[in-house]
Design a protein around this nucleic acid. Structure first.
Length: 597
RNA sequence: GGGGGUGUAGCUCAGUUUGGUUAGAGCGCUUGCCUGUCACGCAAGAGGUCGCGGGUUCGAGUCCCGUCACUCCCGCCA
């Protein structure tokens, strides 16, 4: 018989009354009546009430013992009298009459309690993560994470994907995020990089003749964190398929996501496959972002031509339009009767976001006709108002907000306004998951800062144009077989059909100013691999942490991560990063320089 | 790198707007009482560099300047 327990803390029920048992766990809570002491004993599985009367030395010992100490309890399962049963507890019909105890590990006074549902500062939670993780909500989140990963792994294997591990020590690559570097002892002055994703390796797995691959892959990027983005490291369900077209990948992935969200989504509704396909262009036009929250019913409308016509006399906007600006309208239902403060608050918010303000028109039915009201409506002719009504599908009691700026900025801000207003008006149904694919991403964009053409996504994506027509086309017009999976405004995954034609890859890189020799040098492995018979292939890599975050209904990725780094990429528990002894650095032939002031 | 928020007892927070006696509450902790609780109850007590440094003032938790930490956002994240 096991030394510590005969049962766990959630399994003893009425049928066990009379049994002699042994339980082990943490002292969750004590209730000391002087001559009668209740102890809630907790383990991973649940809580069982144990009781002892003041007779013998055990009582005194238990009375002194602090919460979160670990003990094992010997005793009898006894029935609770009717009036002392606790229906909240799975084991609430019985209790353990303590006969003897063993202290397995004593706890000091706690920096934060495990008991209760109060929120605590992250700094303390991360410093004492092992205590934080004992708390019910965190414990459940992490259990959910495990279940989700098992589910995904099982489904991938069922669908004949093979699970492989790819190297953690690899080569730095010039594209993408900042790398984490690892110095080489055997090759002083040279460095490995931790992979930002197994991108090149998974392509090589395809080239190696394996048909379908997946991996729960750690990805390392030295970039700043966000609420939905861990600094340092995160996990992706990395997957790749040979001889696959875009739709093959969608068809493979959609049912897995649908079933996953149905099973673990806490009874929220999930849209059925096939998920809506939205082109990148349409997403930007309608939602102002490439990761739209489709639960939000508001759709943006381009009304530049109305503002540019002689029917509108708003000079500020006209001047901006002349400088290649556009006007995006944000039509909102049933808000024209909102108090002035609603519009003022939005205006102040917009100024706080760095805008010049937020213009708007309210529409009312006056004498059987819908008319515009509000500070800027006087600049509009009757025709302009009716054009606006038509174009924005306005009915009475609606409002329209306007954003005017250069194309990129206008779309981006209109998208933020769209989301802000929907939140203010509670238009977002939080009991739904709304999936969509964003497809047809442009291959390139113009980098305003560097004044040059750059990749807008993955340079290894296949352009949607034949190689022989590639040079004839304006590069900014070229689309890629590049797609994102989006849910409720979160980008859950990026993916692409890859460029498996080595000559074409050189061409693609050439457009951003990288010569053939540059590509050969920096992507040596890939270029070699593509030169000896590569199958057409493609895949994607959904972010595990974000999936768990959505399913656990959390707003922050750290709530679903066992031991996350804080926003400054520090591990407060293990105290990483840390200084390294001089000797270790000498082995690596590394000298550090002081931060300049 | 930039902007916003926060920082007062071990923990959660009040007090800061308008400077003024000994900086408070709840939880936790210590001690005592308590045999049916499950947020047990009752009583007493300990516990403070008001993040840190400087300044203004007769006097600063409160005003000013600087700085640090955490967090949210922008940049960044092919």
């Amino acid at each position: 018989m096991n030394k510590y327990r005969t049962h766990n803390c959630s399994e003893l029920k009425s049928k066990d009354i009379g049994k002699k048992v042994k339980l082990s766990g943490w002292i969750h809570r004590k209730r000391d009546h002087g001559n009668l002491l209740f102890i809630d004993l907790r383990d991973h599985f649940g809580i069982t009430q144990c009781v002892i009367e003041n007779e013998g030395k055990n009582f005194k010992i238990l009375e002194k013992l602090r919460p979160e100490s670990v003990i094992s309890v010997n005793g009898n399962v006894v029935e609770r009298s009717k009036d002392t049963q606790n229906k909240e507890l799975e084991t609430g019909l019985i209790e353990i009459k303590i006969e003897s105890i063993v202290i397995l590990s004593e706890s000091k006074e706690l920096p934060m309690p495990v008991f209760g549902e109060q929120n605590y500062p992250e700094e303390i939670r991360l410093k004492y993560r092992f205590i934080d993780l004992r708390r019910k909500e965190m414990h459940e989140n992490i259990k959910l994470r495990s279940a989700i990963i098992s589910f995904l792994r099982k489904r991938m294997l069922e669908n004949n994907f093979l699970e492989f591990q790819t190297p953690i020590l690899t080569a730095s690559s010039p594209e993408g995020a900042r790398d984490f570097l690892v110095p080489s002892r055997l090759h002083p002055g040279k460095f490995y990089a931790l992979p930002q994703a197994p991108q090149q390796f998974k392509q090589m797995v395809m080239i190696s003749g394996f048909d379908k691959y997946f991996q729960i892959a750690p990805c390392f990027r030295d970039e700043d964190g966000r609420a939905d983005r861990s600094p340092g490291e995160h996990y992706q369900l990395d997957l790749e398929m040979s001889f696959a077209e875009q739709e093959d990948i969608f068809n493979e992935v959609e049912p897995i996501f649908y079933d996953l969200f149905l099973k673990y989504g806490r009874h929220k509704k999930t849209n059925k496959p096939p998920f809506k396909r939205i082109t990148y262009k349409e997403a930007i036009d309608k939602y102002g972002t490439d990761k739209p929250d489709l639960r939000n019913p508001i759709e943006l409308v381009n009304v530049t031509d109305i503002f540019n016509s002689d029917e509108v006399k708003l000079k500020i906007f006209k001047d901006l339009i002349k400088k290649k600006g556009i006007v995006k309208a944000i039509p909102v239902k049933n808000t024209s009767s909102k108090p002035r403060s609603f519009f003022d608050n939005l205006n102040n918010w917009a100024i706080g976001e760095g805008a010049n303000g937020l213009a708007y028109i309210n529409f009312e039915n006056i004498k059987g006709k819908i008319q515009g009201k509000g500070p800027i409506s006087k600049f509009f002719s009757e025709k302009a108002i009716s054009d606006l009504i038509k174009k924005c599908k306005i009915s009475e009691k609606d409002s329209v907000f306007f954003v005017c700026n250069k194309v990129t900025e206008a779309n981006k801000f209109a998208g933020i306004v769209r989301q802000k207003i929907a939140e203010e008006l509670a238009l977002i149904d939080s009991s739904k998951f709304e999936f969509c694919w964003i497809i047809d991403f442009p291959m390139y964009h113009f980098d305003e800062k560097e004044k040059k053409i750059d990749f807008s996504h993955n340079p290894f994506s296949m352009p949607q144009i034949d190689i022989k027509d590639f040079d004839k086309k304006d590069p900014l017009e070229i689309l890629a077989y590049q797609y994102d999976l989006v849910c409720n405004g979160y980008e859950l995954s990026s993916g692409a059909i890859r460029n498996h034609i080595v000559e074409y890859l050189f061409k693609v890189f050439n457009k951003v100013g990288h010569s053939k020799s540059f590509v050969e040098k920096n992507f040596a492995g890939m270029i070699k691999a593509l030169s000896f018979g590569a199958p057409p292939h493609g895949g994607m890599a959904p972010g595990i942490d974000r999936i768990v975050m959505l399913l656990a209904d959390q707003k922050n990725i750290r709530e679903v991560t066992l031991f996350p780094l804080n926003q400054n990429a520090q591990d407060l528990l293990m105290e990483a990063p840390s200084e390294i002894p001089e000797k270790q650095l000498r082995d690596l032939k590394i000298k550090t320089i002081k931060k300049d002031n």
